[in-house]
Write a protein that binds this DNA or RNA. Sequence first.
DNA 1: AGGAGCTTGTGAACGTGAGAACAAAATCGA
DNA 2: TCGATTTTGTTCTCACGTTCACAAGCTCCT
Lengths: 251, 251
Amino acid sequence: MTPARSRRPSAPTRTERGIPEATVARLPVYLRALTALSDGGIATASSEDLATAAGVNSAKLRKDLSYLGSYGTRGVGYDVEYLRYQIAREIGVTQDWAVVIVGIGNLGHALANYSGFGTRGFRIVALLDADPDLVGEQIGDMEVRDIAELEDIVKTDRVSIGVITTPAGPAQEVCDRLVTAGVTSILNFAPVVLSVPAGVDIRKVDLSIELQILAYHEQRKSGEAALPPVPELPTMNGLPDLPSVGGGVGA
Amino acid sequence: MTPARSRRPSAPTRTERGIPEATVARLPVYLRALTALSDGGIATASSEDLATAAGVNSAKLRKDLSYLGSYGTRGVGYDVEYLRYQIAREIGVTQDWAVVIVGIGNLGHALANYSGFGTRGFRIVALLDADPDLVGEQIGDMEVRDIAELEDIVKTDRVSIGVITTPAGPAQEVCDRLVTAGVTSILNFAPVVLSVPAGVDIRKVDLSIELQILAYHEQRKSGEAALPPVPELPTMNGLPDLPSVGGGVGA
DNA sequence: AGGAGCTTGTGAACGTGAGAACAAAATCGA
DNA sequence: TCGATTTTGTTCTCACGTTCACAAGCTCCT
């Protein structure tokens, strides 16, 4: 007996308070747009206004917002301050999240230097590196500390978000240590695929991948005919020399 | 091979050589995985092996690769070098793309310093900034040049990709100048929505948005009850003070 | 009060993507 | 040569995301 897989009318199946991932990814954009409007002294905005400011179409914006609740007024629009607060609360930036940055190379430096970490809601509690020459260096109002302190810091300061800006090599080990110590969200800039246990969220930022995606489209634009010849059979020898493609920005 | 092109039964409608965007975004990941295998001396790999290395499931990987052609051998797997070359060619990194970086703040510095730009296939032809104190500074083997030279450089060196690492303010103007000069792909690190004419591709990298997405999920994990109280009606006054959320990493 | 004019919120249609499952094709051993 | 085994390429189905289109609801004007 099949467990009655009823052909339901493919209901949206929006589980209680479950917001689609694609919508979650756009909420920060809306938040930024609202902040800009607010700073510009705008008190009320229609979905059309907001959509323009956020660079999406208005139907999508309205549907996205509808997952949060009914915070608009028909015939009028959205109160900018009120909606801003609702989105900030939904995202979770009304509270502070403790963050550590591991790997203070060029990129780690840049992130550490960024005043206020760009966005309130996040507080850098430590900069960590394995290089003894870097440990002790002052960056802004913070000092680079030894990676040996990782576990202590994560536990003491209840760090939930870790940013990995190490080279590819040590990234997985750093990741493991962060997770073991209690970090449950990771933002990875190292050009490797990190594996983490279930329950840990991971996001990846990768410059070289972004460039390659642009290159693909660029190649399309500059005429199909410009494509290099394709060897139809695995000649194996005679492939053009292909230098180490696939690296990435790590540190 | 696709035999008859049936139109009615809502065929996947894979237009000639048109690769789904989701697949395009994964090709660079496969490329990197293949490079790693190649460096490790592996000559042949199954879809299962590759999928593991790339962090996807094998059915998806096989389907992705099938859009490029039939480059595997049933019962055997894929020849690592051959497939690597095919993907590199499809992406377009077998040729060199000229790139300019505009805005040499912390982040621009970090990108400029990155040796070889992380990935072959891309060649930084200029670092530009508006700050006279920065112009002339030596970074690696390059010198920061005045942004006034933007148009000349883009035209002379046939630059097709521009990287914007300025603060939010000047980003749109820089973008406009790049596009007018002939750039058709833009990678934007500034925390603003840039508008570009049709035909210009744009991709965005935004640290603060990534962090906010992590924060959302983090908030979910730490118990629903921890959500701040929700003012049910637009009280308008009495909203908790919300500092300038929505900024981003710009420079 | 009542209608005109806007704008939200949402149901439905459509398109894209993911994953399971399997037929087709290659190798290997007897 | 034939069958067993392996692994690709593809088909089918379901889930997710986007967009359209419009009823519901609000304000303003007469």
